[in-house]
Amino acid sequence: MTALVKLTGVSKAYGHVRALEDVSLEVHAGEITCVLGDNGAGKSTLIKIIAGLHQHDRGSYEIEGAPVRHASPREALDHGIATVYQDLAVVPLMPVWRNFFLGSEPRKGRGPFKRLDVAMMRETTRTALRDMGIDLRDVDQPIGTLSGGQRQCVAIARAVHFGAKVLILDEPTAALGVRQSGVVLKYVAAARDAGLGVVLITHNPHHAHLVGDRFVLLRRGTMTGSYTRDGITVDELTREMAGGTDLEALAHELRRPAP
């Protein structure tokens, strides 16, 4: 089976800052690929390339076997790649239903009288969210009044509704508590079960191991490891992420001096 998305040896520099160096990754339908790394490791840069916000300098980017180079997020969207950013996911002051359809508004009428199909938009938003298990009383409320987890869920439901093949999530659980994180991870799993290929960015190895099928570890722009679920345990993942020996050195340093 060809991968939905395949990056091979991708590099990217911002001026003199080498944000990514020779990184490879695969995303398959019905699977979750986790990208793990510390702050500044290049995780966001990686997904911005997949999402079409940036272009890679070297390496190759293939969608279902065909090489691509997205000039804009719109192009990536047209290839079925939807991205949910932690802070860019929604426009807080706009009603839920307007956010749900933003950028892909259904319209009726013709010529200069082409207008939004508001009744349909409201109804579709309500049912699409209900199908994902999110029951909103009022789709007219500004989306900013929802909790962080709910907002992530609306963004995920939107991607699923618009038939995305690949769903990219940038640290969807970063700002959330334990319970809300759990809810979001459930929707991530629901998207996977709906047949989407998911890229999950996180620096929480426990979240990653709960749902992930493949793991890519980044450190300072380089790929330090690439595993499948069978190939690594949570503890190993945690250790790898913290930089293995670095952590042991840290543990040694922090140990109470013997009395």
């Binding site: 860019l88 996911a89 426009v91 807080p92 002051l93």
Partner: peptide, 18 residues
Amino acid sequence: NWIFASGGGPDAARAVGV
């Protein structure tokens, strides 16, 4: 819709293709 989004969250709007 695009006017509201361009003012209320330009980056979010751009990311969804506005």
